[in-house]
């Protein structure tokens, strides 16, 4: 198996889908000859042509609208947001047009909206956000946040093949920092299925995307304390894998929910409520949240570091919870 970066895995996934299915095409800003701000579509225009790799005006509503319109004719568009921070520019198209179309008038919208999100790269308040919750609270969308090259490739392929609008958040901190084994043969990772990335017995950390790696690092530290941590990587944040969440709580009885975006109205609140409904009797301690702060993501490295969840914070919270 080849070792690929997270970015290359996504690139290869889209490339293979375009080779496999003539109805797949890409559109977005600077994705053609330039190859995209992060080079996810580098080389695509040469291979697939300007018809299938379309450089658009800087107009996010037009990009989503056009992707949706093309999907109504049976195409499978993959639209790139240069940064997911810009996705609210197209909010009405996504929320009122695309997400509601199947429920209201029975028209499927098989399209993918993808792009980089997340902090830890000093991108400042408009290039570091994790806006996935706006879409989790929006029935009709599937929201995908992979953590590993294997999952990133398998999930982008699954998203392109899915008959529903999928929003695919790529974590830009992971793009070239992590490598992993990716099979050369065709495979997909099912949307809506979480994955235990580390088995453990003392407590569970429920998380996704870049935070999976922080949790793994914390787990190694905690192992020396004799704390055996289980890590559940959600992979898809909408629809959530209720069964997997309940199962890990029933197994370890203690749970930390870890995410990068702001705390209030964040995914941890939703998962806590879900645990309350599914596995309340299994809890042996309070549900702990480790999240970003309730502010914009600040620019200066010391401030950004303070804003974002840290491995030391996970270690401390885990020790307290174990002792509870």
């Amino acid at each position: 198996m080849a070792q690929l970066t997270y970015l290359e895995a996504i690139r290869q996934g889209i490339w293979e889908e375009m080779e496999r299915d003539p109805t797949v095409f890409c559109l977005g800003e600077d994705i053609g000859i330039y190859g995209g701000a992060f080079k996810v579509t580098d080389g695509f225009i040469g291979r697939f042509g300007a018809e299938r790799v379309i450089d658009t005006p800087i107009a996010e509503s037009a990009i989503v609208g056009a992707a949706f319109g093309a999907s109504l004719t049976g195409m499978r568009p993959v639209a790139e947001f240069q940064f997911m921070d810009f996705i609210p520019c197209a909010m009405n198209q996504i929320s009122n047009m695309v997400a509601k179309t199947h429920y209201l008038w029975g028209a499927p919208a098989p399209l993918v909206l993808r792009g980089p999100s997340g902090g830890y790269v000093h991108g400042g308040p408009f290039h570091s956000q994790n806006p996935e919750m706006w879409f989790v609270h929006n029935p009709g969308l599937k929201v995908i946040c992979p953590a590993t090259p294997y999952d990133a490739k398998g999930l982008i392929k699954a998203a392109i093949r899915d008959n529903n609008p999928c929003i695919f958040f790529e974590h830009k901190y992971l793009y070239r920092r992590i490598k992993g084994e990716v099979p050369s043969e065709d495979y997909v990772v099912p949307i809506g299925k979480a994955n235990i990335v580390r088995e453990g017995s003392n407590l569970s950390i429920i998380t996704y995307a870049a935070m999976v790696h922080s949790a793994l690092e914390a787990a190694e530290v905690l192992k020396n304390d004799g704390i055996d941590v289980e890590i559940l990587d959600l992979r898809t944040v909408s629809p959530l894998d209720r069964e997997a969440i309940a199962a890990t709580v029933r197994k370890t009885n203690k749970v930390i929910i870890l995410h990068e975006h702001s705390r209030t109205g964040g995914l941890a609140g939703e998962i806590a409520a879900m645990i309350n409904e599914e596995a309340f009797d299994s809890l042996d301690g309070p549900i702990v949240r480790i999240t970003g702060l309730d502010s914009a993501v600040p620019f200066s490295p010391p401030q950004e570091e303070f804003f974002l969840p840290k491995v030391s914070e996970i270690v401390n919270e885990a020790r307290k919870l174990k002792a509870y």
């Binding site: 109805t23 095409f25 018809e51 299938r52 379309i54 107009a59 509503s61 037009a62 990009i63 989503v64 609208g65 056009a66 992707a67 949706f68 319109g69 093309a70 999907s71 109504l72 004719t73 049976g74 195409m75 568009p77 009405n92 198209q93 009122n96 047009m97 509601k100 179309t101 209201l104 008038w105 028209a107």
Partner: peptide, 25 residues
């Protein structure tokens, strides 16, 4: 026929996308 939504103007890029999809075909 594409269904309208209450917000105005959003159908314009959508219909443009329909034409784009058809042209690719």
């Amino acid at each position: 026929m594409v269904s309208p939504i209450s917000m105005l103007g959003d159908l314009i890029p959508v219909m443009s996308g329909v034409a784009l999809g058809a042209r690719l075909q």
